[in-house]
Write a protein that binds this DNA or RNA. Structure first.
Length: 205
DNA sequence: AGTGCGATTGACT
DNA sequence: GTCAATCGCACTA
């Protein structure tokens, strides 16, 4: 199917999302994230994800539910947004059922719609610097803690979508980036060869 | 109440 | 390639 001519991003209904976290992380590759703002809609294609699982020492939910991570425990398709290193917001999609603390981190997008807006938000014109990395894409889409807990399966300020474009392509797998505990698990997924994937080249093969 | 530490980024050598 | 900024949060006492 061709991308919709107007660039519209149809929301993905919840029952289209795989329940299992690793399956969801792979499923989301090639799908869209769309953000509605007063000046227009900004969107990008997901090219890199990571899974955070139950019993995973790298996960924020490892020690149970807290005020920060409670959105991870919602049923699949809800936003878990948190601030990392005091400066960068991270967008996750909750997975599994209500009460299970698992999620998929969106690590990189390929810019699709509203590039001029993204350039303004990021303070750079360079396409490759707009949404390569979880903190960068959050800034490009103006995602912050106010969106934590949002349902991403319906049109609203932020949603997951399918524009009918780009089939996923070949999926690469590696260890996750920037963690120290449970660092050897192959839970990072990316579209091989896509220039908007973050991380060191050695992990992108 | 105090402390240590990040699911990162951008500036710099 | 190296490295410091920055602050909310979870943990200790």
């Amino acid at each position: 199917m061709e991308p919709h001519p107007t660039g519209a991003v149809r929301p993905l209904p919840r029952d289209a999302l795989p329940c299992a976290t690793v399956e969801l992380a792979r499923f989301l590759l090639g799908r869209m994230v769309a953000r509605a703002l007063p000046d227009g809609v900004v969107s990008g294609r997901i090219v890199e994800t990571e899974a955070y699982l139950t019993g995973d020492a790298a996960s924020h939910a490892f020690r149970g539910m807290t005020a920060r991570n409670r959105s991870m425990f919602r049923t699949r398709g809800h936003a878990y947004v948190y601030l990392a290193y005091g400066a960068s917001f991270m967008l996750n999609v909750s997975s599994e059922g209500e009460g299970v603390g698992e999620a998929v981190l969106i690590r990189a997008l390929e810019p699709v719609g509203g590039v001029v807006l993204m350039q303004r938000h990021r303070g750079t014109a360079k396409l490759r610097d707009l949404t390569r990395g979880p903190g960068r894409l959050a800034q490009a889409l103006r995602i912050d803690r106010a969106l934590d807990g949002l349902d991403l399966c319906a049109a609203g300020p932020l949603w997951l979508g399918d524009d009918g474009g780009a089939g996923a392509g070949e999926i690469g797998i590696s260890t996750r980036i920037g963690i120290t505990r449970d660092a050897e698990r192959p839970l990072r997924f990316f579209l091989r060869g896509n220039p908007f994937v973050s991380g060191p080249a050695a992990l992108n093969r």
